[in-house]
């Protein structure tokens, strides 16, 4: 059906509602499934899943060891799996080694833990520059790395999707899992930024 064949005066909200009511009547869809999908994509699939993985690894040495050894299994253990979540490799950032993830070919991305990728991740500027001059790109993100820090750029592909376990910031020793997870952002887990510590009360 072309644009011209659409009823121009019937708005899209009504048309969607009409389509849904017909599909429900004909048993082709059910409201619960429709709403489940909206909920999953809108709220559940997203960087919060990855943040929970990070918080768990920060507080549970056994889990962290498992995560670094078999990322896919350890992440699935927390219930996060799905398409593009297979073959996850988790890389630990330390004071001496900083990983940053890119997909030079397209935009392979572990979306069960990080949600859908941000637009900059698929920009050719990021994809090519982070490989050639990672320190400069990271500096633009506000991530200044000393010469004593080794930078490793890892290239995600359809075979392996990388996920960065960022460093736990100082001053978080007494925080709960939920509080820790709230500190972790998507950019931390791609490796373009480090986790900011808890907000310090104003001087």
């Amino acid at each position: 059906m072309t644009q011209a064949e659409m009823e121009p005066d019937i708005d899209l909200a009504l048309r969607t509602e009409a389509l849904e009511s017909l599909l429900l009547e004909r048993g082709l869809a059910d409201t619960k499934t429709i709403e489940t999908f909206i909920g999953i994509y809108e709220t559940q699939v997203g960087p919060m899943n990855g943040a929970k993985v990070v918080a768990r690894a920060w507080t549970d040495a056994d889990y962290k060891a498992k995560l670094l050894q078999d990322g896919t299994a350890a992440i699935a253990e927390l219930g996060f799996k799905g398409p593009q979540g297979e073959h996850m490799v988790v890389l630990e950032n330390t004071p001496a080694l900083h990983h940053v993830v890119v997909c030079t070919l397209c935009s392979c991305y572990p979306w069960p833990v990080l949600g859908l990728p941000p637009s900059w991740y698929k920009d050719s500027a990021y994809r090519s520059r982070v490989v050639k001059e990672p320190r400069a790109v990271l500096a633009e993100w506000g991530t200044a790395l000393g010469d004593d820090v080794e930078v490793k750029v890892v290239d995600s592909s359809s075979e392996v999707r990388y996920f960065v376990l960022p460093e736990r910031p100082a001053g978080t020793e007494s925080m709960s899992l939920e509080e820790l997870a709230a500190l972790v952002t998507r950019d931390n887990m791609v490796g373009v930024t480090r986790v900011a510590g808890p907000a310090v009360t104003a001087p």
Binding site: L12, T16, L23, I34, F37, I38, P47, G115, P118, R186
Partner: peptide, 20 residues
Amino acid sequence: NGELVFSQPWEGRAFGLAMA
């Protein structure tokens, strides 16, 4: 920021319908 954006409610419904 990596999350889906629906600017109007019907967009979410249309999305959910197709996914279901």
